[in-house]
């Protein structure tokens, strides 16, 4: 009787078995990596209606974050500054700049500028800026070095695992209170020592890792 299949097919089942296992593992791995916030969300840089430059204001002029984001120390939200905050200075400085046209219109028409939100956590996540600032977590820990961003982009994944990594081991992200808004601060050699002292000072054991810490 003639053979139905050529000889090489004798080994085919083995190869198919090995290949399918590999394909499943590799596809899973790829999806797991590429569909994660680390890959999808980091680098999100929407075009803002007004070409506001954090680099100029924070990096070159050395303005403090809290000058505009006034809520950050006291409330869950840092607050996007209202038009008035811009005009406090730009009444005088570059009052006729073409770039500020929308801001001036906003002031005249009493309509807010439609800024595009960059850092957004899902509705079921309750993040509180003040809680992080008061214990000495710097702005740059989550937002990256804003002082070098011409247009702000998302620098960190803001995923649950990323949050948990810090909540489980926050020591590297605690800094002296006067360095909170410092964009270029790097942990010193004795960071562990400092963190221990800081935690004792504030009487904090560990940040919450309970579900209701963030989800409620």
């Amino acid at each position: 009787m003639a053979q139905i299949f050529p000889k090489w097919t004798n080994k085919a089942p083995l190869y198919v078995a090995i290949a399918s296992v590999l394909i499943i593992i590799i596809t899973g791995g790829l999806i797991n990596y590429y569909a994660s916030p680390l890959n999808i969300d980091v680098g999100y840089r929407p075009i803002q209606p007004v070409p506001y430059s954090h680099k100029v204001h924070v990096g070159d002029l050395g303005m403090d974050c809290r000058f505009c984001h006034t809520g950050v120390e006291y409330s869950p939200v840092a607050m996007i500054p209202p038009t008035k905050t811009c005009m406090n200075c730009h009444n005088m400085i570059k009052a006729d700049s073409e770039n500020l046209k929308l801001i001036r219109e906003s002031q005249q028409n009493k309509t807010p500028v439609q800024w595009v939100r960059v850092h957004k956590s899902p509705d079921y996540v309750y993040f509180d800026h003040s809680a992080h600032i008061t214990v000495g977590v710097g702005c740059a820990s989550c937002h990256g070095n804003i002082s070098e961003m011409e247009v702000v982009f998302q620098a960190k994944p803001l995923s649950m695992g990323w949050c948990l990594n810090c909540h489980r081991n926050p020591d590297d992200h605690l800094r002296p209170f006067d360095k909170i808004t410092n964009m270029t601060w790097t942990p010193p050699a004795n960071q562990a020592e400092f963190a221990a002292k800081q935690k004792a000072l504030l009487d904090i054991k560990a940040p919450t890792t309970d579900c209701t810490g963030c989800h409620r």
Binding site: Y124, D210, C211, T212, H215
Partner: peptide, 15 residues
């Protein structure tokens, strides 16, 4: 649904 350190029976809706 898990238990928190301060004794709450938590419910994480998104999970």
């Amino acid at each position: 649904t898990t238990h928190s350190e301060d004794g709450l029976n938590e419910m994480a809706y998104n999970r």
